[in-house]
């Protein structure tokens, strides 16, 4: 997909595949690195130096565009009366603070592109994200880790209140280590996508061509783990989650694609809950053709400290035939 496309349709912007490609004019898909982190830090500029996209009227770094920036450059005179009226309406008493991102007229974007500059500014890339809890990523063991002995050295972040919610990841991690959860649930569980389905799968599992291609929820089990448990390919088995006695009934796909001690499941299924078919609870005519257990019935606690995104990719499970 040629995304993002800037400006209105009549501009016929081709899309920006590489956001910071300075070899092209911004109207032809070129761009700069977004000036997203302020303009100065510790006395050093955060704007680009000696770098700008081809054909740019500004031959240096520049901040994100607001009406104030537009005025300083004297480009605000190029706004149409209609565009100006919309910006004034949005800005109320403080028109200078209206940024391109909330300019519903699109006028600021249009003028920037005409001048060969990027409305989101021209800044430096950064490797040190100083406003995040871990400015440079560090290793932290998952909350449910198969290597509990590493938790002391690589713990998750301390419990804290994030926005209005508590995040008690460290307490949960410590509890899992204390109770030796990894012994009871020795298999690493992760999840991912199938090419046929999208997201939770309700729409794609309702498409008869796609549903026919993937008719059963399954778990990929390593050949060795399957042999230990007497599991045959295609057999219905139970996968147990590390929290609250959760379990799901899925088909086994015995494969070398996953390593020993690792299980993988697609996350596109729902409609079965812990072995029970829930089809009768769908409003009439809305039940997808294919239903199956949701992998997240058995995934566990864990939230990103900044975005609140849940942690469904690294946890533990046990697999048994019954």
């Amino acid at each position: 997909m040629p995304w993002p496309c800037w400006g209105k349709p009549e501009l016929r912007h081709p899309g920006t595949h590489i956001l910071y490609n300075t070899d092209l004019h911004v109207k032809e898909g070129g761009g700069t690195f977004r000036a997203r982190f302020g303009i100065e830090r510790n006395g050093e500029t955060l704007l680009a130096e000696d770098s700008y996209s081809r054909g740019s009227d500004l031959t240096d770094g520049y901040p994100e565009f607001t009406m104030g920036v537009l005025k300083k450059l004297g480009w605000d005179s190029e706004l149409t009366a209609e565009e100006r009226a919309i910006i004034e309406k949005i800005g109320g008493g403080n028109i200078d603070a209206v940024s391109w991102a909330i300019d519903l007229s699109g006028g600021m974007q249009r003028i920037c592109l005409e001048h060969g500059v990027m409305h989101y500014g021209n800044g430096k890339a950064r490797a040190n994200a100083w406003n995040l809890p871990d400015p440079v990523p560090v290793h932290r063991e998952p909350i449910y880790t198969p290597r509990p002995e590493l938790v002391a050295k690589y713990p998750t972040r301390p419990d804290e209140r994030q926005f209005r919610l508590p995040n008690i990841g460290m307490s949960v991690q410590k509890g899992a280590v204390d109770r030796n959860i990894a012994r009871e649930f020795p298999i690493i569980l992760t999840s991912g996508r199938l090419v046929e389905y999208e997201g939770g799968g309700e729409e794609t599992r309702s498409n008869r061509w796609l549903a026919e291609l993937q008719q059963d929820m399954f778990v990929e089990v390593n050949v060795g783990d399957a042999a230990d448990r007497g599991i045959k390919d295609g057999q219905w088995i139970w996968v147990y989650g590390a929290e609250g006695g959760a379990k799901i009934r899925v088909k086994a796909l015995v494969t070398e694609r996953v390593g020993r001690g690792v299980a993988w499941m697609p996350f596109h299924f729902s409609g079965f809950y812990q072995g029970k078919d829930m089809r009768q609870f769908y409003p009439e005519g809305t039940d997808p053709i294919v239903l199956g257990e949701s992998v997240n019935t058995i995934t566990t606690y864990g939230y990103d400290p900044v975005t609140g995104m849940q942690e469904p990719k690294a946890t533990l499970c046990q697999i048994r035939t019954s």
Partner: peptide, 11 residues
């Protein structure tokens, strides 16, 4: 193995 050919054909 994206099965686009199969899906295109069926549709």
């Amino acid at each position: 193995e994206c099965n686009a050919c199969v899906t295109a054909c069926k549709n």
